[in-house]
């Protein structure tokens, strides 16, 4: 397929994953506004921003002043992360970018996928923070996450499993690995500062990865940080685990093949295989995960570059003579 189209599908997958991830974080975050202490709310906002590799806008979250200040800040931050068109990391923009990419590759995705994505985009166009804040903002974020889940289901049911499909999956899982590593690293950093007990947040983290029930089932109702990380990173049955994402990447790369510029293609395959090994075993220890997750994060960025070099922006000199 056309390289630029593969790239469009890849980025569509990435942006939708980003939108899903941010919607889930936001849903949990606005839930904390109802009954959690200020310190926890502040931590939550910082975690949302750091998982996007950003800082909260200047002037917000400066001190634990009062409920009123924190709630006012929360409104501003929610708007910034949801509807702000000048913020490239807002949910609004993630959908706009995903749709823009989808529009250009409409002929590679199913009509049902396009319709589903376009309707979500149009729904978002008509909303503002004032409106969603009036009632239960968490239901808006839950709805957005559900729209993406619907899109994924529609894609699963209707899209031909050709190269286009593989590039969407590649984008989706590379993005998921990066975002997961970012959130986990933010959580570990807070734990290592040890300025507060973060028991509640480790449980909250399990919710981000939809892993709470699995955790209770596998371990116990008492949440231990080391075990949380083991589950989220290494579990082979948890749909959102880092391990499953990395294995998905390896199998997609295998399906696509090395591409016209085999060097980068083989490097991508080798890197994803070695990452799979890295996250296979549990450690039951927060500190030892720190370095590993840094490596996963860095390598997933390299993986992205290899994919670009192998299939999209490959050097022409490396090709056989025509």
């Amino acid at each position: 397929m056309l390289s630029r189209s593969a790239q469009g599908l890849y980025w569509m997958g990435r942006y939708l994953e980003r939108a899903a991830h941010l919607s889930r974080l936001m849903q949990l975050q606005v839930e904390t506004l109802v009954d959690r202490p200020l310190r926890e709310i502040h931590f939550g906002w910082n975690r949302v921003y750091s998982s996007m590799n950003q800082h909260p806008p200047a002037g917000t979250l400066e001190a634990f002043r009062s409920d009123d200040y924190t709630l006012a800040d929360s409104y501003t931050l929610a708007d910034h992360l949801t509807f702000e068109s000048t913020n490239p990391d807002s949910i609004w923009n993630f959908f706009a970018y995903a749709r823009e990419n989808a529009r250009q590759v409409r002929n590679y995705i199913s009509a049902e996928m396009w319709l589903s994505l376009n309707l979500t985009f149009l729904r978002l166009q008509g909303l503002t923070i004032q409106e969603i804040w009036k009632t239960a903002p968490e239901s808006f974020y839950a709805g957005t996450a559900k729209d993406i889940a619907t899109f994924t289901g529609v894609a699963d049911a209707t899209m031909y499993r050709d190269e286009g499909w593989h590039f969407i999956q590649l984008g989706r899982y590379i993005e998921r690995v990066q975002l997961s590593a970012s959130v986990l690293l933010a959580q570990i950093a807070a734990q290592e500062r040890q300025d507060e007990s973060f028991d509640a947040d480790w449980a909250n983290l399990l919710h981000v990865f939809r892993a709470f029930d699995a955790y209770v089932h596998t371990y116990s109702v008492v949440v231990q940080p080391g075990q949380v990380l083991d589950l989220i990173v290494t579990d082979e049955l948890l749909p959102g685990s880092v391990r499953r994402s990395l294995e998905a990447i390896a199998s997609v790369l295998d399906a696509i093949g090395p591409g016209p510029s085999p060097g980068a293609g083989r490097e991508a395959a080798a890197l994803s295989a070695s990452l799979c090994v890295t996250v296979r075993d549990g450690r039951n220890d927060v500190t030892s995960w720190h370095a590993t997750l840094e490596q996963v994060y860095g390598d997933s960025r390299k993986l992205h570059q290899h994919v670009m070099d192998a299939y999209i922006a490959y050097p022409l000199e490396a090709l056989p003579a025509r």
């Binding site: 397929m1 056309l2 250009q104 002929n107 696509i256 591409g259 016209p260 999209i312 025509r322």
Partner: peptide, 29 residues
């Protein structure tokens, strides 16, 4: 493009080499 079964390309997807026009695909030119 969909109806005629053609690839939808922009100028940057194409290149001229040895007297022919090629498009850049994931499996080469």
């Amino acid at each position: 493009a969909h109806e005629i079964g053609a690839t939808l390309v922009e100028g940057r997807d194409l290149l001229v080499d040895g007297g022919y026009v090629y498009m850049r695909t994931t499996s080469g030119l």
